[in-house]
Design a protein around this nucleic acid. Structure first.
Lengths: 205, 205
DNA sequence: ATAATTCTAGAACAACTGATACAGAATTGT
DNA sequence: ACAATTCTGTATCAGTTGTTCTAGAATTAT
């Protein structure tokens, strides 16, 4: 019983994501947030409790709509090695299309708010862990399918790929040029290539 | 002529660096800054013009005291390949010692303020370019000294190393564990190793 | 209809924001 | 000594911050 909510909760949380994403946690004011969400300030506090709680909800929404969706999509109907390659290629494409350079909300949060708020820090760390698990899982699967060298360390390599991914998202904020970003990724992907024998490297002993 | 400045300008700008570093550009208020600098608000505006101009000065100070100092120190009395390795090792050590997880002011700025302020964005991009140039320069030198395989692309590899470096500084904000960070770097440094022949990789054709 | 409950709009809260005004103190050249 | 100039502490500016309050509108169970 009681009066019914008049606003669309999905639209509202999406508006919050957009606002936090574009402005950052601190810079996004409650009034800006409410405007983007299409609700009044009182409704925001009534429905979410406050700015911080809203941010946690927005982060969860972002995680679902961005990397979890991408992981689910790329991991079906694709061989594991191609899933990894497609993931990184998509990040580069997204970074280049991102005209207003909002970057990745997760990465932004890892630097902006995580260090000042251990609770959110753990949430962000968990999300990053999910991405790393995607890499690790597909490396192992690719090794089983003989797509990827059997002697590389899946644990180590997944960490490397996550690091490279984060580096790209930082670089893209100041230098969103395709060649720059692809140069960062290329050596990482080469780790997954089986080494050719017919074309020996110069410089070997 | 006129009244002399009563505060130590070096101490003041160092205080500004510390404040911007710990709190971020937006969160650092002019009053907090003035306190950390040991001066009054009027002196801050008189000496630096305003918050933004002070930030640009603080960034320059930080660049000199952090990575330029490191580059100069590591590049003397060290072979080029060891200079690169030492640089990355130092970043990891610094990230682990950084108890309050301030991270790197340059990286923080690249995400916080650069996208909303193209002027500062260019400044940050230039600083990142200096670090990349350090990598490139030492890769080329190491190749000339046969320390590093001659067939790797110095342009591409320097970009990769910069990306990995930025990735580490992001990861360290949420997961400052040595093993995590070293796992990110290890495959990158392996690019610089001359490939052993006596110990062939499994999985090769 | 009435009670109970939940939502909404808008005003209000104290605290803080970057920036400026002002008066006075300190310095140098004349 | 005097004018000219520059620095400094304090007060102040209008505007914004996250949050709360108040009054009333809308809903369901009885």
């Amino acid at each position: 019983m009681g009066r019914l909510k008049e606003f669309d909760e999905d639209k509202a949380i999406d508006g919050a994501v957009a606002c936090f994403w574009a402005r950052g946690y601190e810079a996004a004011s409650v009034r800006e947030l409410a405007d983007h969400m299409g609700i009044g300030g009182a409704s925001l506090y009534n429905a979410y409790g406050g700015k911080r709680a809203l941010f946690v909800a927005a982060l969860a929404r972002y995680a679902d709509r961005s990397f979890r969706e991408r992981i689910a999509r790329l991991e079906t109907g694709r061989r594991p090695k191609q899933a990894i390659e497609a993931f990184l290629a998509e990040i580069i494409d997204r970074s280049l299309k991102d005209r207003d350079r909002k970057g990745c909300l997760l990465v932004n949060s890892a630097l902006d708010v995580a260090p000042h708020d251990s609770g959110i820090g753990e949430v962000v760390a968990d999300y990053l862990g999910e991405i790393r698990a995607f890499f690790r899982r597909n490396i192992v699967a690719a090794q089983a399918a003989a797509q990827v060298p059997a002697d590389i360390d899946a644990e180590e390599t997944s960490g490397h790929l996550l690091g490279v991914l984060l580096g790209i998202r930082v670089l893209a904020r100041t230098q969103p040029h395709r060649e720059t970003l692809e140069a960062v990724v290329r050596p990482a992907l080469r780790l997954l290539d089986t080494r050719p024998v017919g074309k020996p490297r110069r410089g070997r002993k």
